[in-house]
Design a protein around this nucleic acid. Structure first.
Lengths: 207, 207
DNA sequence: CACGATATTGAACGATGTTCAATTAAATGC
DNA sequence: GCATTTAATTGAACATCGTTCAATATCGTG
């Protein structure tokens, strides 16, 4: 009791976040509770509330780390390839790889909801924005129409699509089981975005 | 107390499920609790456990209804259009429309997780499969390669992508705010799948 | 060494899911 | 019509959760 000084306030937060990551990875998002974290790091529940305002706070800060890690992984992949089309394929593969390797943590990022009115921290959006820019930078000019002004829209559409495939695959809501077949879905999608995109067929278009 | 017979066992389950839907729609997935449902339908918590084995069961059966409703909506749209390319665009628009209209219920379908080992009921998969078949049936032949043997893969890739865009949009994780701009993302995606798909560029392909 | 600051505890509160004996009302048999 | 079976419903209990907070123990400092 009292100030044990085993850890500084910052060390304790790191410890808690690392432990939280372990819990989530091992037993899924629902297993993440204040009390379990406290138990594992050898403190009382109350002590946790000095470093975190509540469970949402802890969760958001764990997610922040996950997103940051994901960004790092993708930026590494991006650096290791020359051809930009190739890069897009490898980025998608790396995204899927991360989702498969850190499934529960990755899902927590997208499934956690803050109470209405609250917003995720800025660094959160920063990392996300960086990911989309990575995609946008690797879009082949042939895919972006004449002016290229639609590049952000195309990048968003493409990456949201990659995300959708990964999410459904990882959640088991797709019939496909093997990693290879999910890869094939991603390849199929990317084929559509990497090929030269001709004029839209006026006949069947709606607006 | 005792057999009140205000409602048959089946009526009570219907009542509970309707109430559950209202709770979720109004206050989000986290607000759905056994006790709240019981409170609103004027029964004790224990009584609920005669019709539902637990909260997961109630949730799954609520989700079943939602998916069924979604399927109906899409099948209606499918019936109201002739051109198949047009149909795909309208199906995507209807999917987004449903997600926007019944946001919380729709999210519950994809965010709820059963404890490991348990599987969602068969009707669940039936409805989902029907949706993918709807998409597959409307894929233009030009989009499916020579043999058309890849149609299921293409349909899965396309619809998972549509789903991804809707999910990120509905969750507010996309910068885009307006419904119109989300529509534009869907249109951009569909443009890629509705246009004649030429041979894949061998140079930039990986496998 | 004493004092003030603060990290940490421990207990409390209200809420949750789930279980189950007890109770009560309907259905059935006579 | 009455007694007995059957089953719906209750109410209370238990374990867990998030969160708060007064009390306490320990540290840094004067």
């Amino acid at each position: 009791m009292g100030r044990r000084n085993d850890h500084t306030r910052e060390e304790l937060q790191n410890l808690a976040l690392r432990t939280a990551a372990e819990i989530v990875e091992a037993d899924g998002p629902a297993a993440l509770t204040m009390r379990e974290v406290a138990r594992r790091i050898g403190y009382t529940v109350g002590a946790l509330y000095h470093g975190f305002t509540n469970l949402d706070d802890l969760t958001v800060r764990l997610n922040e780390r996950t997103v940051s890690e994901l960004r790092l992984a993708l930026e590494n992949v991006n650096r290791q390839t020359n051809d930009s089309g190739q890069r897009l394929r490898m980025l998608a593969a790396a995204y899927l790889g991360f989702a498969l390797l850190h499934t529960h943590r990755w899902r927590l990022v997208f499934e956690h909801r803050l109470p209405p009115g609250q917003e995720a921290p800025k660094s959160y959006r920063t990392h996300t924005a960086a990911l989309f820019e990575l995609v946008e930078a690797n879009l082949p000019a042939s895919a972006c129409g004449r002016s290229g002004s639609e590049a952000p829209i195309i990048a968003t559409a493409l990456w949201s699509s990659v995300h959708g495939i990964c999410m459904l695959a990882v959640s088991g809501k797709l019939q496909v089981g093997t990693t290879a077949s999910v890869q094939k879905l991603l390849d199929t999608l990317l084929d559509r975005f990497l090929v030269e995109h001709s004029a839209k067929p006026r006949v069947t278009r709606k607006r």
